[in-house]
Design a binder for these strands. Sequence first.
DNA 1: ATGTCC
Length: 463
Amino acid sequence: MGNKISGKDFIKLGFPNNNSINIVLGQIHRYRKKENKQTILNEAKEVLLEPEKYIGHGIWGKVAEGLIKPVEIRLQQLKNTRSPFSIFGENEIDEEAKYQLYDALKLPIAVKGALMPDAHSGYGLPIGGVLATNNAVIPYGVGVDIGCRMSLSVFDLPANFLKGKSHQLVQILQDQTKFGMYETHKVKADHEIFDRTIFNEIPLLKSLKTKAYQQLGSSGGGNHFVEFGIIKLEEVKPEWNLIPGEYLAILSHSGSRGFGANIAKHYTYLATKQCPLPKHVQHLAWLDLNTHDGQEYWMAMNLAGEYAKACHDDIHRRIAKSLGKRIVFNIENHHNFAWKELVDGEERIVHRKGATPAGKGVLGIIPGSMTAPGYIVEGLGNELSINSASHGAGRKMSRAKCKSTITKSFMNAQIKDASIELIGGSVDESPFAYKDIKKVMSLQTELVKVLGTFSPKIVRMDK
DNA sequence: ATGTCC
C-alpha cells in the first residue's frame, strides 16, 4: 500500500465503482489531505458500513449520500420554452441582460422570473434579475457578495445638526470605517455569530472563521460606501418614534466580505461540477436543496447574510458611539440573496441578484448615487416582479469606460457642485456612471411606495 | 464583489 490515497483503496474497501469514488476522493483531497492514510480508510469503512449515521456530517455526509442514493452526473438540457416573466423599465435595460434572463428561464428548475428597471448584465443571472426556482439554488443567482445589503440608521437630530460639524463627521468616517481589501479594525468587536456551532460542522466555514472575525465591521471596495446624510421622512411608521421631518442618518452599503466571497466561490465550483450545463449558461449551475451540498450552501449562505448584517450593525454602532448619539431606528435589506417564499401559492426559491425585496409592507432602501437621493420604500407586493424592486439606479457606464473618459478633477468638480464631501471614491464610482434614479423610481411605482428620501452629505468609499 | 486560480 503506497502513501498516496487513490480510488483503488476505496474499491478494496468495498466502495461501489461509481461516482462514490469521486466523491470520497474529492472530500479527502479538500479536507483531510494531510492526514494519515490508514486513519482515513478506517473512517471510510465505517461510513460504508453505516452511511445513514453520517448524513449531515461535514466531511462524510456527502460520501454517505453518494452511497445511499447514487446520482449520475449528466448534462442538463434547457427547456424549449421560457417560464413566465415580467420586465420593468424595458427601454432602460440593455439587451444582454434580457438574454441572460431568457436563458435562466429555460432552466428545468426555473418557475418565474423578472427584471428590475436597473438591470444590467452580470455573471449568470443579470444584476437586477429575480428568478424563482423549484427546490434548487443557483450560487451565481445570489452572486459573489452574498448578503450584500443596505442599512440605514436614523438619529433624532435635526438636519441642521450637520452645520459646522462636517470636519468632525469626516473624522468619524475616517476613524470608524475600514475600506479596501486589507484594512480591518484594530480593536475587534466580538459577535454572537462566532459562537455558532455551524462553524465547526461545515469544514469550509471553519476555515473561514478567522477571516470573518478579522473583517467584521469593514466595508470592502467597489460600490460599497458609508455615508452621513439627511433623511427626509414624508411618512412615518409608529415604531420609528419620530414625526415626519428631516433628520441626520447613516447609510451603508456592503456585504459579507471575503467570508461570503469564498462561500460563493466554493459552492459555485461544486455546482458546476455536479450540474453541467451548456457552456453559455454554465454559470447558472444549481444545487438541489435535497442534497448534502445544497443543504450546506443554504446554511452557509444564510450565515453569510447574518454576517453581512453583523458588519453593518458594527459599523453603525461604532459611528453612533463616536458621535455620542443613540440610533432611533434602523431599516435594512439584503439585495443579493435567495429566500424561500410563496410564489403564486407554492413555496419557491426566490433569487434576488441586485434586487430589493418588496413584499407587501416590507421596508427597504434603494440608493441613488453620491449626488442623488436614495429612497426609503415600502413594498407593494406585486406578484409580477416576484415581490421585488430595483436595488439602485443601475450603471449606465462600465468601470472601464469611466476610467477612460472621466477624470478625477471632473468628478471632484461635480461632487463639489452638489455640496458633497467625498473621502476616497474612484472615477468608476462617479455619479455620472449611474442612471437617473428618479427615472428608475418612476418605472417601479407599481412595485414600491416611497416613504422618504436620503440625501448623502459626507461619503466614504474605497480609494 | 474578492488576497481578482480550482
